[in-house]
Amino acid sequence: MTELTFIAQLGIYAMMFVVLAAAVAAVTLRNLFHCALALAGVLIGVAGMYLAMHAEFLAMVQILIYVGAVMTLIIFAIMLTQRLGAGDVAQNNKQSLFGAVAAAGFVVTLGGILWKTPWPVKEEAVTSSFSASDLGESLMTTYVLPFEIIAIVLFAVLIGAIVVARKDAPKGAEQ
């Protein structure tokens, strides 16, 4: 079965490369809609990475929430704030050179540290199977408090977003 794993490794490296390329595109493309689609590519690629790490449930949730909902949100925002087919205006400001240098420096230092540290890889962690039911069970037992808090947070965000983005602000608010 080594050929299969070799092909799988090849596939994962290819996916990584595609995700990085899409990420660069998402950051540097001039037309905002194209870079939103590149972000969608990145999100699907990251979901593929989760699949490679046997976290199927997480991959599906990622696609459902990110690609299904957040991308729709971003595209709605783009549509509302940009004239249809507006000219592609320069997207990055003056300090693009410094930004690049900062990011590159960050990568070099952190990468070096990561590469040298001997990570305590435990064999049985790699092989342990972790299905959606264990996830659900732990969500309901050990992490039930954050689960409830996140519900309240999302509820607050729901109302907050609507109030902020309302077109006809109520009488009192418009000074």
């Binding site: 990584m16 995700v19 990085l20 990420a23 660069v24 998402a26 950051v27 905002l32 870079c35 939103a36 990145v42 990475m49 971003i74 925002a77 783009i78 704030t81 320069a90 997207q91 990055n92 400001n93 300090q95 693009s96 410094f98 930004g99 690049a100 900062a102 990011a103 590159a104 960050f106 990568v107 952190l110 990468g111 990561l114």
Partner: peptide, 21 residues
């Protein structure tokens, strides 16, 4: 891979003119 992705994200936040970017 994730540090590279992180760096691209940082670069994007620093450099983009557009809020949605």
């Amino acid at each position: 891979f994730s540090t590279l992705l992180f760096a691209i994200g940082v670069y994007g936040t620093l450099v983009r003119r557009n809020l949605i970017g």
